[in-house]
């Protein structure tokens, strides 16, 4: 911005009013001398709280997604061969119960309407085309119980707003203490593999909550 011409600063003392020579007649305009903030505080907009309808819609959506994830069509990408993470990819006991996601969709599980697929994919639909007709495949149906689950979830969601924290603390106190005792020394996490190499005594190794330490000592 223009400084109001050469020598403006020098003649500053002579000015009247605000003392700035470039002050115009507009009384609303005040010169700002403070250093302006580079990133002024901008409060982000806050989300309106969710309505009951929105809650249940989201819940339905998440339940739907969960069902697809557990179904035959959800796939995760194959790991590239030859790239091995020394800590993550080694077989470990604690990973025994880890949920395994499929790398390839399970296509042979259900019947298809072949006319709706292009011819070049027909073999993919039914790799053992010759034997077809002897065994009848069925669709995988999520039964009514799946929806009951949804109901439960929805109720839980609604309760959440209510007396959740108190109730939970009360009934879970004893269990918590036990669990905490068990976990106390594990606070850094089971997966900190380095720790096990550094420490001499490794009685904690593989100590899971299901009490299998014996197997590992």
């Amino acid at each position: 911005m223009s400084r109001g011409g050469r020598g403006g600063r020098g003649g500053g003392g002579a000015g009247r009013g605000g003392g700035t020579p470039w002050a115009t007649g507009d009384p609303d305009v005040r010169a700002e001398f403070a250093v302006s903030e580079l990133f002024p505080h901008m409060p982000p907009p806050v989300q309106r709280s969710l309505t009951k309808d929105e809650r249940s819609t989201v819940h339905r959506f998440l339940a739907f997604r969960e069902q697809v994830h557990n179904g035959p069509l959800y796939t995760i990408e194959l790991k590239k061969k030859g790239v091995l993470n020394a800590f993550e990819d080694v077989q470990k006991y604690s990973r025994k119960y880890e949920k395994k996601r499929q790398k390839v969709p399970r296509l042979d599980a259900r019947p298809y309407v072949k006319e709706l697929f292009p011819e070049e994919l027909h073999l993919t639909l039914d790799p053992h085309g010759a034997t077809n007709g002897t065994t009848r495949k069925t669709l995988i149906i999520n039964t009514l119980s799946a929806l009951e689950e949804l109901e439960d979830g929805k109720n839980a969601e609604e309760e959440e707003e209510g007396a959740k924290p108190g109730a939970e603390d009360a009934d879970a106190d004893d269990v918590e203490e036990e669990i905490e005792d068990e976990f106390e020394e594990d606070e850094e996490g089971d997966y900190n593999a380095d720790r096990y190499f550094m420490e001499d005594e490794n009685d904690d190794y593989g100590a899971d909550d299901d009490g299998v330490d014996g197997d590992w000592q």
Binding site: V104, P105, P118, L121
Partner: peptide, 13 residues
């Protein structure tokens, strides 16, 4: 093979 299988999934949906 995987592309084919994935296409089946996507066409099915």
């Amino acid at each position: 093979k995987i592309v084919k299988q994935t296409l089946v999934v996507l066409i099915q949906q």
